[in-house]
Amino acid sequence: MTDRTAPTGRTALPDATAPSRARRRGVAGWVDVRGRRLGGWAFILNRVTGLGVLFYLYLHLLVLSQLAIGPGAWDSLLKNWFLNPVFLVLDVVLLAGLLIHGLNGIRVSLVGFGLVVSRQKALLGAFGTIGAIVLLIGTLMFISHGG
């Protein structure tokens, strides 16, 4: 039994340390897209892009470490890797991830502190539109610089 009466006469919370049959899905529950609505998708994307941006941060530091080797190593990296079309596509993916995580983060912060709660869906739509426009402009810039 998880329900019990505390000495104060109040109902205590269930004992979370007791063996659970609760069928919690764990982290899979965060990314399970079945039946999810708009806010659920925003939650999933925020988690996935958060991990992606974290991975990129370490990758970025690794790449920057080439500067310590010398200008030649850095120039070679730029020429042989970063102007490659595959990397330009990855740049677009990175920008999309940053926009999703950043803009949704602002939405979550605002709504999470009790602001614009009743308009949170409209806020999601507005940030989604802003993100799409910035992503389009960024993609065009990547293409023009890469070509």
């Binding site: 609505r37 708009l38 806010g39 659920g40 939650f43 925020n46 009790g114 709660v117």
Partner: peptide, 30 residues
Amino acid sequence: RCHVAFECSEACPSNEAPASHIMQLRRSLI
């Protein structure tokens, strides 16, 4: 602990809007 997915409010069959209550609660707690 809530991360503002609003799935609870979307799924709620009796228009309790739990997520909105949680956000109001947070304002009060702040």
